[in-house]
Write a protein that binds this DNA or RNA. Structure first.
Lengths: 329, 329
DNA sequence: TTACTATTGAGACACGTGCCTCAAAGCAAT
DNA sequence: ATTGCTTTGAGGCACGTGTCTCAATAGTAA
């Protein structure tokens, strides 16, 4: 069609050197004209290509992370047909240097792409950039990093906070009240974004409500219990509780023990066995979540597209801020 | 590994005749032992297999169907690499005989699988069964058919109705009021299920509210306007409006014209440009929807799994009842 | 044992692409 | 026209599987 040999087409398609610009254009024109699309399956077969991906996740007993791990295993099975192998490495997320060191140890000989869930610190940011320079595709995962705008997988945490605030405001009767905000730790960017969204909507749309300063549990059951009981002792008019961290177990079990007045609205994040139970038994009024299976599959698809130099279906990769009630579990 | 030749393994793998049971067992044992998984990409390459799927959809100017069509085109592109070709046929959904005739005209030589969106009638049900007998995989799509329990793609409409009812009840203050229910037509199974879910939750959880009988617009703009204005003339204490059909345009534009008291809660179904606008401008309080892109991709994946005799990832194929507010658009 | 049939093996070619080598042709500077 | 470099062509083998043919072997009934 282009009047050239298969070898030349190959040179053009795979970007090899030593082809005249004029020839390249001829080939591309022909490709355009007959609407040729490379059969990626055949190409991968020929290259006996395997996609070696790595998920770098925080080590924690967090149920949400447990879900993520389950989904990675699931995807492992589902994507074997596509020659995708996904490994997992757990790192202490409080130690940015360890994370950076791990990333620094990865080379393109061993891995094609990495999905990284880690708090944003200068060390990590640098390590990610250097990783990319070395030719390993890196993709911020769930925890955002201010790098390449849309190249990350996770939900818009500000919108999630706004949504939580809206539901809180709309579920409560229109009268003055205070809102307790409980977090594991508010240092992470995700927590800050959620909090800011929550405050924004409460202040602007529901001025009769007042969001109290965040209370941190640091993952401790005891601390959670103390916080919960103290809130209700000192602040008489608590109307709602917003649990903004991804792990709702500690605050929830504290709430179960303390027995709150039952017209209080409680909203938490992330769908886990624990939050599901709390929805069913009526403790939680709503859960704002992102689908862990979708997160994992989206990361895999995006990494694959990156290694192939393709683009992905925008609409499929958008991580939705999902609202879950008892009724649409 | 099994001590047999490649030819025999082929006979076993592809279920050809004339292999002793003992040999079959040996081969399967070996497969089990070394954990062999067939490279589907290579297999399809060798067979130069293409998956020819057909979407049978109602012909209607419905925006939701428009979205579905867009997503089918999108999937078309995204799945070319997997040799999937999806065609669309529109049929008058009020004529079950035409639908049945169309299905009857499909043979396995021309198409591998069909996703069918059609109201449930005896003719259609029969046609689907006969289609399957002829060896064409059929999958009810969006509109459910009481056939094979989980083999369909769409959301649980009863749960959707319950969710709509719950939001309605929770968004409204706890005081007596009436709820208008507007539908295109309430004859379809989907509408009935939504209505039943809605009533159930209103009656049991929010007894101070009363859901009025459904009002049908039959897609007519004028009729919608008349219905909307009459409701508010004759019934003084309308607290909320539930638009339960997939096309909210007629009722919504009627509402825009009539200018309702603005503390009325309005909930509709399906995310479309129209409902999005209504969310943004505050006319709608919530939209209950299913993701059209996900519906289409799920149908394609399920049809592909059916033709390959594989199973799909349960969790990925579950169509969620999504709640959309202005904040998580 | 013989004469069957049922089962198995060996080998070839195909699918669409990648990747390599060697030779041929084109081109520019001298 | 010669030399040396750049660009192109021809052809082969590979990837993992399917599918076919023909021959070889095993098994069974007479």
């Amino acid at each position: 069609m282009a009047g050239v040999s298969r070898a030349t087409v190959d040179r053009v398609l795979n970007g090899r050197e030593g082809v005249k610009k004029k020839t390249v254009d001829k080939v591309n024109a022909a490709i355009e004209e007959i609407g040729f699309v490379r059969n990626i399956a055949a190409a991968n077969l020929a290259k006996s290509r395997t996609y070696r991906f790595l998920f770098v996740l925080p080590e924690s007993g967090d149920q949400f992370h447990g879900e993520i791990l389950r989904r990675i295993n699931e995807a492992q099975t589902a994507y074997t047909a596509d020659m995708v192998k996904a490994a997992v490495r757990l790192v202490d997320q409080n130690d940015p240097f360890k994370i950076a060191a791990l990333l620094a140890s990865l080379s393109p000989d061993v891995v094609d792409g990495v999905a990284i869930m880690a708090p944003e610190t200068p060390q990590v940011r640098d390590a990610i950039l250097r990783l990319q320079e070395r030719g390993v595709h890196a993709l911020p995962f769930i925890s955002n990093q201010t790098l390449n705008g849309d190249q990350w997988v996770g939900m818009d945490n500000h919108a999630a906070g706004v949504t939580a605030g809206t539901l809180m405001g709309r579920f409560l009767p229109i009268k003055a009240g205070k809102l307790a905000v409980i977090a594991d730790s508010i240092l992470s960017r995700d927590s800050l974004e959620r909090r800011s969204g929550f405050d924004q909507v409460i202040n602007s749309e529901f001025p009769h409500l007042a969001a109290l300063p965040s209370l941190e549990t640091y993952g401790s059951q005891d601390r959670a219990k103390r916080i919960v009981s103290e809130i209700f002792r000192h602040q008489g008019d608590i109307a709602g509780v917003y649990i903004l961290s991804s792990e709702a177990r500690a605050p929830l079990s504290a709430i179960w023990k303390v027995q709150l007045p039952h017209n209080i609205v409680i909203i938490a994040h992330e769908r886990t066995p624990c939050t599901e139970n709390a929805l069913v038994d009526g403790t939680l009024d709503a859960v704002i979540t992102q689908d862990p299976g979708h997160l994992v599959r989206s990361a895999v698809r995006k990494l694959r597209a990156l290694t192939d130099g393709r683009s992905t279906l925008q609409s499929q990769e958008k991580i939705r801020v999902e609202i879950i009630l008892k009724t649409n579990l």
